[in-house]
Design a protein around this nucleic acid. Structure first.
Lengths: 184, 184
DNA sequence: ATGCAACGATAACAATTGTTAAGAAATGCA
DNA sequence: TGCATTTCTTAACAATTGTTATCGTTGCAT
């Protein structure tokens, strides 16, 4: 995603120098909050190195429902698009390096390359389909099955992410996850 | 939705006579399958009277995950858009009267009124947001809370739909739903 | 009207998952 | 290195939910 975008921008020699300044590199330690519940997302992030999680507060406990890794674009989509306060917090899990792009600059680029709009819509569509998938898996599968699917389809998540975040993501307690992992 | 569409088409006196023939009224008894898992959705339905449910098979049990009532448009969106076999079955709960519109005619109308495309995209966007909401409620809330939310926000569903479908929709067994309803 | 299928309630028991608590292992940082 | 924090595991018990089965009611079709 970020690669394609930058490639495209670089090809446009005339404007590249200008666009380059739009992207701001940012280095953050683990457990840094990039966007806090209630704020309005005015920045799009691209992960160069590291990983993030998206979570929301539910009766004092935080519930993680999405992870992001290298190469992915990260934002509270709803909030970014509609300029509404986000329901979700975005936070680093590991020390992370990212590029940030402000909404203004994002819109500027989109207006400069209207053909990118379609690609952006596809990303949206994909993101929502992803929600639908997660939703169905919650309905269909019990925690053990969801863990096994995650292990099969995204072993990298289980490798890199602390277990209590994964437990939260699977909708169970860390204790229950521990049982599933060991009483196999 | 259907009202707006028909209103718009009627306003176009020149073509209304032609378009009118696109819509085919259909009367079906309860428990009639309109679209079966594995088929390709080539028809869009609008409900005049009655209600439907959308479900899929999971290890021999059917899981209901969406209800449709008067005035709503119904289709397996993914299948209808991408001409892929649907994962979901659409079935009437009550005796139902609906209008059907074939994909060809739907596309014909859309091409004739390109300004409708945006409205259609909004419907899509809304549908997906709805999935996201349902997804979050599955994560956040226990069955009792989900039942109470449904009772509060959609009492008409609880009134009209048999309990075992609602239990399925809530992700619990009919027995458990019965307990929740009575041990309040 | 009669019989059958669908629907809902309840009981008894099993399985799963949550809660609380304690301690071991790993990790990060001064 | 050593200390503090985070992370993970395990145990004992509680709560929730599922499973199986039975029974009464209702609605519909013949």
């Amino acid at each position: 995603m970020i690669e394609k975008l930058v490639e495209k921008l670089k090809a446009d020699k005339e404007n590249w120098e200008k666009f380059r300044l739009f992207f701001c590199e940012k280095k953050i330690p683990a457990k840094t909050v990039l966007l806090k519940e209630g704020e309005i997302a005015d920045t799009l992030f691209f992960i160069k190195k590291g990983c993030l999680r998206m979570w929301f507060n539910n009766d004092g406990k935080d519930i993680t429902f999405q992870f992001f890794f290298e190469g992915q674009a990260v934002a509270s989509i709803d909030s970014f698009i509609e300029s509404q306060p986000t329901l979700f917090t975005i936070e680093s899990i590991e020390p992370t390096v990212l590029f940030s792009l402000s909404r203004e600059n994002f819109n500027f680029i989109l207006n400069h390359y209207p053909e990118m709009k379609e690609g952006f819509n596809k990303i949206l569509y994909t993101r929502f389909r992803n929600y639908a998938q997660l939703f169905l898996s919650r309905i269909k599968d019990n925690p053990r099955k969801r863990y096994e699917d995650l292990l099969k389809n995204h072993p990298e998540i289980i490798q890199r992410v602390p277990q209590h975040y994964i437990a939260s993501y699977l909708g169970i307690t860390p204790i229950s996850l521990s049982r599933i992992r060991n009483k196999k």
